[in-house]
Nucleic acid binder design. Structure first.
Lengths: 183, 183
DNA sequence: AGCGAATGAGACGATTGCGTATCACCTGAG
DNA sequence: CTCAGGTGATACGCAATCGTCTCATTCGCT
């Protein structure tokens, strides 16, 4: 009965997303294993969160690769990115709100890499005339993260249908709520 | 030296926004009072969080009143709302992420009231032809909350200038990132 | 100045969760 | 079948934090 490390991380992410103060015991139970086994694979709570962080970074990076942001229009790239990141949305929203990760001096450099890639994408979109230039790439990047997290939350509590996740995020981020004169 | 209850709540909100696991002692120190005094005014951690919740709801409700959402265009109303809510943005972002508040059966009915008012505002905007109808009022409401929280965070960590807070949020929420043909 | 209320500092027990160790059980490979 | 490794259950000590209490001090009001 080899332990499925990734599945443990997934269930931990799902639980911690809902209640970030969950006990190690609860995390173990949620994964269907004993607390002792959980401790054998993750030295402690910190190590568990770090492993989740690594997983989240890795998945987001993979989503960026999958999205091939530079192919076609920026809009198409963004749609592909949101689609690719949807399975990881819950995990990412947990990590973003786990600001404990960002107060130590040992910040995972992966976030900087991701920020740089996303920010550069928005900047290129601006240079190509597809995106407004009065909204900074840094803000668009943060807003994308925020909307992904909000979307994951809204779906989880049932305020938005799961199948609308991508559409709601991309349409709001790209077009906004205002009704255009022509569309 | 009568205790300034509201100031205590403000500093608590500021601290807890940055680190939601802060100790009661840290909360007290941040407010410049002793832990004993903090306990005299708030029976415990729960009571403190509940007081913060009440304060946040009250302030948001006041912001909704101030904004006079029904006067002028929906866009003007939204701008006034974001402006009015800016001072409370940190507190609100803390409360929104404190999902511990929403798992008990004793959910503060204030949130429903607020959701209803904001949601109704977006719905009226749709009916008047100002807002798109393919984005549900519930989603626009959640997105507004999310962007306010993201904006507060971005300003706090220095990724967005404080003076751009309102502009970034309203412009993104209304117009989106896409560059219009005419603008 | 005097007095009552409020505060700060510290101590205390209780609770909680963590990390480790132990032991019995199960499973799969040889 | 045998055995080594992994697992679950349980127990134990430890540290952190909470909530309460006490007591001396300070503040504000008269």
């Amino acid at each position: 009965m080899t332990l499925d490390r990734e599945q443990v991380l997934r269930s931990a992410a799902a639980l911690l997303t809902r209640r970030s103060t969950a006990t190690m015991d609860e995390v173990a139970r949620a994964a269907g294993i004993g607390r002792a086994t959980l401790h054998r694979h993750f030295a402690g709570r910190d190590a568990l969160v770090r492993a989740l962080e690594d997983l989240g970074i890795q998945e987001f990076e993979a989503a960026l690769d999958t999205a091939a942001l530079d192919e076609g229009t920026a809009e198409e790239g963004l749609r592909r990115l949101v689609a690719a990141v949807e399975p990881s949305a819950g995990l990412l929203s947990f990590l973003v709100t786990e600001n404990q990760l960002f107060e130590g001096d040992q910040v995972n450099e992966g976030w900087d890499r991701l920020d740089a890639r996303v920010s550069a994408f928005f900047r290129r979109g601006q240079e190509r005339g597809e995106f407004r230039i009065d909204l900074t790439p840094a803000w668009l990047t943060e807003a994308l993260y925020g909307l992904i997290g909000t979307g994951a939350w809204a779906v989880q509590v049932g305020r938005v249908a799961g199948q609308d996740f991508q559409y709601m995020i991309v349409e709001l981020l790209l077009g906004g709520a205002r009704r255009s004169v022509e569309k």
